[in-house]
Design a protein around this nucleic acid. Structure first.
Lengths: 334, 334
DNA sequence: TGACATGGTACAATCGATTGTATAGGATGT
DNA sequence: ACATCCTATACAATCGATTGTACCATGTCA
């Protein structure tokens, strides 16, 4: 019924010992308590015979460790978070941790519920892509990914967005693109986008310039709208040397706009973006992008989290980890 | 530390009552035990003041319900499973259930470990896309998704693969495609692919025919290899009226082959597939596919699971749910 | 031979919530 | 006034594993 019919008591009975003996033998806690080899063997055999598995609920209650971590993201179905989750799961697994996945849909209230619930469940740590106003105080260990937490003192692991912007700018300049069009989602709350833009601008420096910078809806649904805005922008101004999308949705919007206008990207105009996406490598010409180091973000965050969980004293480690963007050269820049 | 500093005892103390009163009042178990409205109010206030949250670990231990379900899939990063997981999470959430996500990487041993671990954790149910040899006996409630379990008596929710094949066939015929090329992953273990092929073949009937059927590696890494095989096939035989991929990887392989051969899909040859994928709608011409009803699969499976969990007696319900494929008309069939 | 160390194991409390049963005090009925 | 019946609440056992401490044999040393 519960999935755990046999308890330590049962094993103890079969082996003719005390439950405490079972516990210590099976967990190898035999430093202070050394048991006779024969006893150990007997316990092991009994446990195996009964197919004994300790109840982790009971253990959690007693020890205060649930051996679970929570992962709170806006939406698991988003490939970026899905891949992140996959790597987090793998990294946590090795240490015996499992991950409880929670979506917020970018909704602050939902986020709060999720956090409260995870606290109730006694997860040992939290990896979160926070939306505004997350109360993370309850947790011993928290790591923010993708975007920093508002709350201070929360370690943060994410893309070095400024460097991503610079990487983009550097490559544009190197290839002779001078007049650049930019599409960026409008958002007051997310500092990461501004970083990308800053980096880009900085690297463009005197040699290049941002011809125009189009702010569009950040809502993924808004793709047609983004395309429309981009078309307007392009028709109003002259066509820049290259257009870049600062998120993958932006890049897709630009793509659609160019198609409708009958402009060949990679030939008549350069095209590139920040954030990789599935179609980028399949399109022809394939889209050159600077990608996020998803695996590195996930494993760094997980290791940091697990270290925090293990730590008895709050060690003041480096609190921000900005990881290197990855240049993926394809065909949309000459 | 644990995230749960305040216990029912603390609340009880503050409210001047017994912990049992706290428990019953807060959970609304006041049928057998009716408390004075004033007492109820006092308890509520105390709980709120202390920001009390019951330890779900303790509750799980006592009640035998963890209010968690496990979800075991080959890989969360796979968009199909990611979307499935998202909907499962949402559907489970409403009933107070959270989902622990586990990847198997199609590895039977890993799957076994995951299952055993979830059993230890006392999850109340399991949603699983099983690979060969899953021992699901330990669980009170299990639902297989995507592919049926070997073990008998496990309810299964998935695409009606045969109907998907028929849908594909019907639409090909309707549009006048007669000679069809098929690309299908080679696999002995997965019955769903054979169903798709059968459905297709059946619907083609006398009016059409499968010109050739190419078996390719099912490994997602093998895309270049699939393309190569497809090229060989096309060069050896004549070009069929249409080519269909029975999975999205197959369709991508065909696509790549057509590109290399300089054949325009949608014009010189029809192209379609079973299983949608992100790039399908972005490519030009966009790829027509029959898609899986992902949300329906997830919610059906989840509801079935939760019903099983709630059931005290093993109700013999309908054990197989084959859900309707979805025709997504795009541009690669005329 | 007695004091003492130590190896091997059992005992019992504990984590926090749930839940069956008991009980005090008041109301009701005759 | 006494038995009876509620009403509202407390008591205590329990879920299963962990862990500090107590304890009983031996064996050792003086």
């Amino acid at each position: 019924m519960t999935g755990n019919r046999v308890s330590a008591r049962d094993v103890a009975r079969l082996a003719g010992v005390d439950p405490s003996t079972v516990s210590r033998v099976l967990r190898g806690k035999t430093v202070q308590h050394r048991y006779a080899p024969e006893t150990i063997e007997r316990v092991r055999r009994a446990a195996a015979e009964l197919n004994y598995r300790p109840s982790l609920a009971a253990r959690a209650l007693r020890t205060g460790r649930s051996m679970m971590v929570g992962m709170v993201v806006s939406e698991v179905a988003n490939p970026f978070f899905a891949r992140l989750a996959s790597h987090v799961e793998r990294a946590a697994w090795d240490q015996g941790y499992r991950v409880v996945i929670c979506s917020t849909n970018e909704n602050a209230q939902r986020q709060e519920q999720q956090i409260a619930d995870l606290a109730s469940r006694g997860v040992d740590g939290l990896i979160i892509a926070p939306v505004a106003g997350a109360c993370l105080g309850e947790f011993q260990a928290v790591v923010a990914i993708d975007r920093p937490a508002e709350e201070k003192g929360i370690p943060y692991v994410g893309l070095n967005n400024e460097k991503a912007g610079r990487m983009l700018g550097k490559n544009l300049i190197k290839r002779g693109y001078r007049r650049i069009g930019v599409v960026i989602p409008a958002t007051e709350t997310d500092p990461t986008l501004q970083c990308r833009l800053n980096g880009l601008q900085e690297e463009l420096g005197a040699s290049g310039q941002i011809e125009w910078c189009l702010e569009v809806a950040s809502d993924p649904q808004a793709l047609p709208e983004i395309a429309r805005q981009a078309i307007n922008q392009i028709e109003r101004d002259s066509l820049p040397d290259a257009i870049v999308g600062l998120t993958n949705w932006c890049t897709l919007g630009i793509l659609e706009a160019l198609r409708r206008l009958g402009i060949a990207w990679g030939e008549e105009v350069g095209l590139a973006g920040i954030d990789d996406f599935a179609a980028a490598s399949i399109l022809q010409p394939a889209i050159t992008v600077v990608a996020q180091p998803i695996e590195a973000i996930a494993t760094t965050a997980t290791q940091l989290l697990l270290k925090r969980i293990a730590a008895t004293t709050l060690t003041e480690e480096q609190t921000t980890h900005l990881l290197e963007p990855i240049w993926i050269e394809r065909e949309s820049l000459l």
